Deep mutational scan, measured.
Amino acid sequence: EDPKKEILLAMLMVDKEKKGYVMASDLRSKLTSLGEKLTHKEVDDLFREADIEPNGKVKYDEFIHKITL
């Protein structure tokens, strides 16, 4: 499956209130437990690539855009 789609799906599952962003810690939890599970190192690399703080907010569109360039 398309990794971009899988990450967006994980974000939507976490963002039940439809705020347009999720906490990095919640996204990490989903990405390491769903679908093609990522390792913590892979998530760290994704966050670093997208300039996301480990305890920060992750906005869908910015995150998807940064990791798919």
Rank of each mutant, 00 (worst) to 15 (best):
Glu1Phe: 04
Asp2Ala: 06
Asp2Ser: 09
Pro3Tyr: 13
Pro3Ser: 14
Pro3Phe: 14
Lys4Trp: 12
Lys4Asn: 11
Lys4Ser: 12
Lys4Phe: 13
Lys5Thr: 11
Lys5Gln: 11
Ile7Asn: 14
Ile7Gly: 13
Ile7Asp: 14
Leu8Trp: 05
Leu9Gly: 14
Ala10Ser: 14
Met11Tyr: 05
Leu12Glu: 15
Leu12Met: 13
Met13His: 14
Met13Ile: 06
Val14Pro: 11
Lys16Arg: 10
Lys16Trp: 09
Lys16Ala: 15
Lys18Gln: 10
Lys18Met: 05
Lys18Glu: 13
Lys18Val: 03
Lys19His: 09
Gly20Gln: 06
Gly20Trp: 00
Gly20Thr: 07
Val22Ile: 12
Val22Pro: 01
Val22Lys: 02
Met23Ala: 14
Met23Phe: 07
Ala24Phe: 07
Ala24Gly: 06
Ala24Glu: 05
Ala24Pro: 06
Ala24Ile: 04
Ser25Leu: 00
Asp26Leu: 01
Leu27Glu: 01
Leu27Arg: 01
Leu27Trp: 01
Arg28Trp: 02
Arg28Ala: 04
Ser29Asn: 13
Ser29Asp: 14
Thr32Lys: 07
Ser33Thr: 10
Leu34Gln: 11
Leu34Glu: 12
Gly35Tyr: 07
Gly35Leu: 08
Gly35Asn: 14
Leu38His: 03
Leu38Cys: 03
Glu42Gln: 11
Val43Asp: 05
Val43Gln: 03
Asp44Asn: 03
Asp44Cys: 06
Asp44Pro: 01
Asp45Phe: 00
Asp45Ser: 07
Phe47Arg: 02
Phe47Ser: 02
Phe47Asn: 05
Glu49Ser: 05
Glu49Gln: 10
Glu49Phe: 10
Asp51Gln: 12
Ile52Tyr: 03
Ile52Phe: 03
Ile52Trp: 03
Ile52Lys: 03
Ile52Arg: 03
Glu53Leu: 12
Glu53Pro: 14
Pro54Met: 05
Pro54Cys: 04
Asn55Leu: 03
Asn55Cys: 06
Asn55Lys: 04
Val58Pro: 01
Val58Ile: 12
Val58Asp: 01
Val58Lys: 04
Val58Ala: 05
Lys59Glu: 07
Lys59Gly: 04
Tyr60Gln: 01
Tyr60Arg: 02
Glu62Val: 00
Glu62Ser: 01
Phe63Pro: 01
His65Cys: 02
His65Gly: 11
His65Met: 00
Lys66Gly: 05
Lys66Cys: 02
Lys66Trp: 14
Ile67Ser: 11
Thr68Glu: 14
Leu69Met: 13
